[in-house]
Design a protein around this nucleic acid. Structure first.
Lengths: 336, 336
DNA sequence: TTGAAAGCGCTAACAG
DNA sequence: CTGTTAGCGCTTTCAA
């Protein structure tokens, strides 16, 4: 069907060698202006496009990067993807997105799939189920450039970009405290996720700073991060069933926050009369929500851009990189 | 950094020729069981993975498909993408997603970018700005398999998958009529988009069937499809400023529906007291909205799956395909 | 049953 | 300044 024009066609038509054509096309110095003009004009005329696959084979790189996220339907990730694309496309890289749907198995499959399709680097945010990261470690050990964002694996020494989760959590919790709530629960995702740990820590710190005792039973984990309605509902039910029922709740994730509101709605729990709420969310329709949600917003777009810049730097580095950094970006609190 | 094992390494280590190794690995009949066993076992042991790029070069296909949508952040599209991935990954195809952000220029760039990266086929939903489709037509003429979904170009003869937009619009409008509204306005995206035309038609038909006269000034176009707050606000303001102010509004798009609610909120227009609303939306948090939104939901996941199945059939067809079809899937009305 | 060689599209080292 | 040649990893005639 497709019969693309090759460098050979041009060479034949113009009575030149393929290497001359190649040079003319690529602007090498050792070429006569006349030939160059001849070739470039003819090439344009017949619509020559270099075959990226042949180039990839030759240069041993694909000019594409793989992105592993849990869901593109999650506002945080879709914004991050916008950021990733903005940088990648600019530098001529393709972006291949794959979703884990918070499943460890899919993560392993996707990561290996991307690697075997020889992407030049990987941008990863771990699935909530992921504890064992050997699938990533082995790739990294083999030299695959990897940058983590959002949900990072500290065991792997590479660049990372995250929001200041601890501070964001602190701010949200503090806001609840300052609004007069004292019995603040915490709903979060799986306990091994970096973001969960950081947000839990911020929550605890705020409590401590305001002289409120941390209670273990006020913390509920939803390993599916809000993807499973029942899981969220059970957690909420357990919280409101406590003898010392919490009067507020700090929610540590995007889907979890909306999930929580849905549960409230269904259980006829009124906000903030029965319980107040503040949570992480990057949704851009939060203003339409009822009950309303005081939210911690992460600079997702910027995180995506930064992570991609760092990854491309790793990919294009001439010498093995030894120094890595973890960039931490500020969150913003939107009081509603 | 990466030093992948090649067929040559195996050949050398085993004292065979590369062609023998290749055959052994690919299960050709003309190979001795002994050699085959030897090779496959050794290959597995040292972790041999065929280089997909070399394969692509040889077989002139990349085993990847390109997807062009306006925004992954749009629920409809993220659901469609889930459907696309579910089929594509199953069949060993990569999915490369690109966003137009409703811009014609970006669409042209993205389509050409994907084509030049030699995807094997394209799944396209047009940007709202797109009127001229020659960038797609020329690719299609050259033999690139293309399937349209959602926003289709009827001028291009190929497979298409859409929701029954006309019926969906009819149902929504009818619902408003049956709820007692008679002065129903219509807010839609650009007037050249297939979905706009179909939805407008369903709206008109419902009005006609219930003996309501269609009024041109009740139809407002937002070419940016809700991406530009001001545009939506202006449209709404014009509607409510009409001397014969509408008492209900049927909105023809996802972002437009939420955009509309935002405008209502800001202008302190109360729903349904001041104006009732029904609109297309695939958001999964609609239940949390206030004001609430009666919605027409499209089977986005299924549309994505179907479109991908059709595309892969085109790609893998042995002979040029002459027969194309347009599949139309039912929408569902959620009354809130 | 196996090996040698050509070729997919392109670049680069080496000659001339 | 330009052509010849080899090679990226793999498959596939063609010979042996």
């Amino acid at each position: 069907m497709f019969e693309p024009v090759t460098i050979k066609d041009i060479a034949k038509a113009l009575g030149l060698s393929t290497s001359t054509v190649s040079r003319a096309l690529r602007d090498t110095y050792e070429i006569s202006p006349a030939t160059k003009k001849l070739v470039t004009e003819y090439a344009k005329q017949i619509g020559y496009k270099p075959n990226p696959i042949a180039l990839s084979l030759k240069e041993r790189r694909s000019k594409s990067i793989g992105v592993v996220v849990s869901e593109v339907a999650n506002s945080y990730f879709s914004q991050a993807i916008d950021g990733i694309e903005s940088i990648a496309y600019d530098k001529g890289y393709h972006v291949i997105i794959s979703q884990t749907h918070e499943s460890y198995d899919r993560e392993v499959i996707n990561v290996n799939h991307l690697a075997s399709r020889s992407v030049d680097g990987l941008l990863i945010s771990l699935s909530s189920q992921t504890e064992d990261i050997s699938h990533i470690k082995s790739l990294h050990d083999k030299g695959m450039p990897i940058v983590f964002f959002d949900r990072v694996a500290d065991e792997i020494i590479t660049d990372k970009v995250i929001a200041d989760n601890e501070k964001g959590a602190y701010n949200a919790t503090e806001h609840l405290i300052k609004s007069g709530y004292k019995k603040i629960a915490h709903l979060t995702s799986s306990n091994h996720l970096s973001i969960s740990i950081e947000r839990l820590s911020g929550y605890k710190k705020a409590l401590a700073d305001y002289g409120i005792t941390f209670k273990e039973e006020y913390v509920k984990y939803c390993p599916h991060g809000g993807m499973l309605y029942e899981e969220t509902e059970t957690a909420i039910k357990e919280l409101v069933a406590l003898k010392d029922k919490p009067d507020a709740i700090f929610v540590a994730g995007d889907r979890l926050s909306t999930g929580c509101l849905s549960v409230f709605k269904n259980l006829k729990i009124e906000v903030p009369k029965d319980i107040a709420i503040a949570g992480f969310s990057n949704s851009d329709v939060l203003d339409l929500f009822n009950p309303s949600l005081t939210s911690v917003r992460q600079p997702a777009y910027e995180i995506g851009r930064l992570a991609t810049e760092m990854l491309l730097k790793l990919i294009e580095a001439k010498y093995p990189v030894e120094e890595f950094e973890k960039k931490v970006l500020d969150t913003s609190l939107f009081i509603r």
